[in-house]
């Protein structure tokens, strides 16, 4: 059995509704349930804090105690100490760092985020950005944050040739607007999590694997905000060859 790596998981409470399974123990239980070996974890609660980087200490502590969980620390480029936080992420071998510019009230392709992206590029670490955390139709009335939009991803990937992006929670239309709005070299530096892309009977995921390329997609779930069975089920329904499945489930995120 090949390993399965989830690049899009969270620990911590969600401020807008009661979500079960937010502890590391619950996350590990869910991982065992669906056969996920390793999960990249972001600190869900800290996404909403004024200083999201202050959640990184807890994230590192959790990851040190449980090697199946790998930390994706937040780096907020408008706050003091962001370069130190980025250096620490590299030193601790984090698989990516996270930014949520629209939640932080920032231009998602502005100078500050471009500086962060370039810093990540220089350090050879991907920058992870989420298009959304949940369906816009069900947002809490007090959650007025804009979603990340395709133009911002196009702008970021063009901003520096060393930038590498990991985009989560994007749907088919989003992926296509970025992929076909980028040069082949630019597009090759982006990885897309599959959690928000529709599977059968619609052909969204199958088509993207053909048109954008199998090597651009990675396994992600968005748990515990979403049940992880969804990402497994859509791959199961595609009946992909073993090597294709392996690429999505771990090879492309390595």
């Amino acid at each position: 059995m090949s390993p399965r790596v989830d690049v899009n998981a969270f620990i911590g409470e969600y401020p807008f509704r009661n979500v079960p399974g937010v502890t590391p123990q619950a996350l590990l239980f869910a991982m065992d349930r669906v056969g996920i070996d390793t999960a990249w974890i972001s600190h869900l609660t800290a996404v909403f804090w004024g200083d999201p980087m202050s959640g990184n200490t807890a994230l590192y502590r959790i990851a040190e105690a449980e090697p199946r969980l790998r930390p994706v620390p937040a780096v907020h480029p408008r706050l003091d100490g962001w370069r130190t936080a980025l250096d620490e992420a590299v030193r601790r071998r984090a698989p990516a760092v996270r930014a949520d510019p629209t939640r932080w009230g920032m231009n998602p392709a502005g100078a500050e985020i471009r500086a962060l992206a370039a810093g990540c590029g220089s350090a050879a670490i991907p920058l992870l950005l989420s298009v959304r955390l949940e369906d816009s139709r069900q947002r809490h009335p007090r959650d007025g944050t804009s979603e990340l939009e395709p133009w911002a991803v196009r702008a970021l990937i063009r901003s520096d040739p060393s930038v590498r992006l990991m985009i989560t929670h994007a749907d088919r239309d989003f992926v296509e607007q970025v992929h076909f709005g980028a040069t082949p070299d630019e597009a090759a530096r982006i990885r897309w999590d599959i959690c928000w892309i529709w599977g059968p009977p619609e052909d969204h995921l199958a088509q993207l694997l053909r048109t954008v390329g199998l090597d651009r997609f990675v396994f992600g779930t968005g748990m515990p905000l979403r049940i992880p069975e969804s990402s497994v089920a859509k791959l199961d329904l595609l009946d992909l060859p073993r090597e294709a499945r392996d690429a999505i489930e771990h090879g492309n995120s390595a």
């Binding site: 529709w198 089920a233 199961d236």
Partner: peptide
């Protein structure tokens, strides 16, 4: 509805 993959996911979850 439109997505059988999500229906299957919920069924798998309910089994647990």
């Amino acid at each position: 509805d439109l997505t059988i993959d999500t229906g299957w996911a919920k069924l798998r979850y309910l089994e647990r």
